[in-house]
């Protein structure tokens, strides 16, 4: 048993430092790894754009030009829609269930081969929980209101909404604010109250919709170049795995503390909270599963992961309906009633 080697890695994040929680999840991994290896295994995290642009981090890890990356896998659905399962899919799992699938339910195993095709390993490292549906200039009352709605929304959810007449518009990042302000687009979505507050969209779009059904939970991923992972001593692999798990707990806790406070601030600033009407949600739900079937028919990778994911979801939904959601619903209901009758 020789001395442990000194290892230095660069980790390219997909996020700017201003998103302190989501970017911080990557930094947290680096800090924990250093602490667990007595400072011998050092990972330096670079914000989006410092080494490569935020959306290029998968290419960088795949090509081995950085050793690691911290990102959200659904950014890469253009390469293959299967990536989405590692991040978030519409009407998917909540944070607990997604975590269960990835950590212990066989999700990571079923995705492993897929990621090896890109020469990398993906570890869950951070979670945002359920996100918000975004900022709207006009109210959505019926499915018909979706028709012609110009919505800045990327990825898989854009495809779902397109089926219902929405016009997904991926306009330039810097154009979003003025375009939303002047009505060039009707809506834009981002993350949840804490991160959205910083963008100030509340100033230009009054209605804040929930839930972001396309992100019932977003798992953040720590990508590692496969050859670099294989080279690691077992102790370092263990440290990295632990650090990533730790980061998931850490970010979820931070978001759960920050989001309610931010939501109150937004409400105080005049934001009007709106829920997507049930009719709209139902139409979206149906369109989503149509799209899954269509995609699975065309893409073998997708089908393999989807089948596994769906079976897992079925068992989770059933279990959560027994104790978890009965408990949650009852407690929220009683609490709300008490608040209404002081």
């Amino acid at each position: 048993e020789g001395a442990l080697p000194e290892i230095r890695w660069r980790c390219a994040s997909s996020f700017p430092k201003s998103l302190d929680t989501i970017y911080g999840a990557g930094e947290h991994v680096a800090k924990r790894v250093a602490a667990l290896t007595d400072g011998k295994f050092q990972i330096r995290v670079f914000a989006a754009g410092e080494i490569v642009p935020g959306l290029a981090v998968a290419d960088a890890v795949q090509g081995g030009t950085v050793e690691a990356a911290h990102t959200a896998s659904y950014y890469f659905v253009g390469k293959d829609p299967t990536f989405a399962f590692d991040g978030a899919v519409p009407f998917g799992l909540n944070m607990r269930q997604l975590n269960a699938w990835l950590q212990a339910g066989g999700g990571r195993e079923v995705l492993r081969e897929f990621f090896e095709g890109y020469n990398m390993v993906s570890l869950p490292a951070g979670n945002t929980g359920a996100q918000m549906g975004g900022w709207f200039r006009k109210e959505i009352r019926t499915v018909a209101d979706l028709d012609g709605l110009k919505f800045r929304i990327g990825g898989f959810a854009g495809n779902v909404l397109q089926k219902l007449g929405v016009v997904p518009q991926q306009i330039a990042g810097g154009d979003i604010y003025p375009a939303l302000e002047k009505g060039t687009i009707d809506a834009a979505e981002w993350v949840g109250p804490y991160d959205d507050e910083k963008l100030g969209f509340n100033r230009v779009a009054p209605y804040y919709y929930y839930p972001g059904w396309w992100e019932g939970a977003l798992n953040l991923s720590f990508y590692i170049a496969k050859p670099k992972w294989d080279e690691l001593p077992q102790l370092y692999k263990d440290a990295l795995e632990s650090a990533c798990r730790d980061s998931t707990i850490e970010t979820m806790a931070k978001y759960d503390v920050q989001n309610p406070q931010a939501l109150r601030r937004l409400a105080a600033a005049g934001t009007q909270l709106r829920a997507f009407p049930r009719e709209v949600m139902q139409a979206c739900y149906r369109a989503t599963f149509e799209l899954y079937e269509e995609t699975a028919a065309k893409n073998a990778n997708f089908k393999k992961v989807y089948d596994h994911w769906r079976a897992f979801r079925d068992s989770q939904y059933q279990w959560f309906r027994v104790a978890e959601s009965t408990f949650d619903n009852f407690a929220y209901f009683m609490h709300a009633r008490e608040q209404q009758r002081p």
């Binding site: 890469f76 659905v77 253009g78 990327g154 495809n159 397109q162």
Partner: peptide, 11 residues
């Protein structure tokens, strides 16, 4: 070789 597409709907 991967027929890489856009991550955006209709891209």
């Amino acid at each position: 070789v991967r027929h890489e597409g856009s991550p955006n709907a209709g891209g």
